[in-house]
Amino acid sequence: MECERFRKLTVFLEPIASLVSGGLSPAIAPPARSLVPLVSFPFETVYVRSIVAVSLYVSLCAVLASTLVSLPVALLVGFNDFPGKGLLTAAINTGMGFPSVVVGLVVLFAVSSQGPLGELELMFTREAMILSQFVLATPPITAISLAAIDGVDGGVRDAARALGGTRLDVALVTLREARYGIATAVLAGFGRAISEVGSVLIVGGNIAGVDGVSKTRTLTTAIQLEARQGRYETAMVLGILLVVLVLLVNGIVVRIGDGGVR
């Protein structure tokens, strides 16, 4: 069953993987090659490959960091009643609407040579992009996770405790019960991160080397550059790749959620 699933997934992934990596596996070589003259890619494979790699690296790192911060915060806020809880929840919800260019601007000031993080010399680096996407992705992941955790029946927590669970066990049970909501939260955060242009453009600078290898150029910033320069075909292909990537990540996260049901 698991093997079957995995096989299906790899068959699905292979054409895209080979397009991105530039290497064509013999099994699928004919259809993949026949596509080339039809579309006649107007760009170097290494260019696309590096852009996809930068996009995924930046967004996955940002979402991973956001999730690691968001879940404990959501658990703490969800499990405890304290003065100002409503205000804090409202603030988190407001964070979902942060304009990304403003976040980019703030992160730019922070990493600039006079900024508080100036010594780290992060200006126009992927790490600065991760930082700005982290700021953007954390509010939606926290807010949606919090709603999911709040939705878990208090009786389930009582039961976990009564059966001998520690506080950590109760937290784990709650996370497990809220797993679909949390998966939605992570997807919303990933969607926000990978499809975002404004802040990564400001803090990353959309840089690619003369060798055509992306330094801080992501799919989104590349699309806006290609479109502005009139290379609409390239922009379209990059756009399709972006949508496919988002679909793939969605599929994988949903699979993981389903796998946890047993």
Binding site: G155, V156, D158, A159, A160, A162, L163, G164, D169, R176
Partner: peptide
Amino acid sequence: LRRRIGMVFQEANLFDASVARNVEYGLRVR
């Protein structure tokens, strides 16, 4: 001490998992 005591509530409060995993929970946390 708490782990020598079992409690059943008015509502079943089962976890969203298989019956066996539910019943195994107390053993698992120990």
